Amino acid sequence: MADLVTLPPETLGGVIDTVPFSRRFQLIPDVFGRMDSLLGQAGIFFAGPQTALYRVNGDDMEIRIGVPLPKPLPGFQMFDVDATRALHIRHHGAFDTLPRIYQALTAEVEARDLTRTGWAREVYRFMAKDASLNICDVYMDVAQT
């Protein structure tokens, strides 16, 4: 069961891109690779948690991947994330099972008579070579119908 939470506003710096929704699974890894490259070029060995925001616009998916930065840094696109209400599920394990989490959140939206309002987001809390150790908070922005 998902929790209904309030997320505060925040400003992140990272990568913003749009990819065809039908090719998102092939193209999203490149966006994360660009983020990793930016962090390396800036000499940042830890900045977290890393947050990925996803929003579908017609046939495209807008992707924003960012981290909290103490100030704007060269190459990073700064963006604001509005405060919102969201359904939340904490996911443990491999990221290839995340589609099941989104299915569960979508079912909760319908069961609670809510409406999706914008972003889905993944906040990566712990990532390991052993994917069974991964922890990712998954949120779906919602409003009362």
Rank of each mutant, 00 (worst) to 15 (best):
R116I: 09
R100C: 02
L7P: 03
R121M: 15
A143W: 01
F21M: 10
P29V: 09
H91T: 11
T97G: 13
T6M: 05
M140D: 10
F32H: 14
G43R: 09
D36Y: 10
V67L: 06
V15F: 03
R112T: 02
V67I: 14
L12D: 04
Y102I: 07
V81K: 06
G14Y: 04
A104M: 08
L38R: 02
V31Q: 05
S132F: 00
G48A: 12
V15M: 05
P70G: 13
D59W: 00
G75Y: 02
S132G: 12
H91P: 09
V56K: 15
C136H: 03
L38F: 08
D60P: 00
R85K: 13
R121G: 10
R64F: 02
A42G: 06
L105C: 10
Q77S: 13
F25C: 00
L53V: 08
D60S: 12
L53S: 03
R125H: 13
D141I: 00
G93E: 08
G48D: 07
F95G: 14
P74H: 04
L98T: 09
A2K: 02
G13F: 06
L12G: 03
Y102T: 06
L69H: 05
L114W: 01
I16S: 11
P68Y: 10
G93P: 05
L12S: 03
K129N: 12
A52C: 15
Y139P: 03
M127I: 14
V5F: 04
V81I: 14
I135Y: 05
P8W: 01
E122H: 05
Q77P: 00
I89P: 02
Y139N: 07
Y102L: 13
P9M: 07
T115F: 00
D80V: 02
A143E: 12
D80N: 13
D3K: 14
L133A: 15
R112H: 04
R55S: 08
T6W: 02
P8K: 09
N57M: 06
Q41E: 15
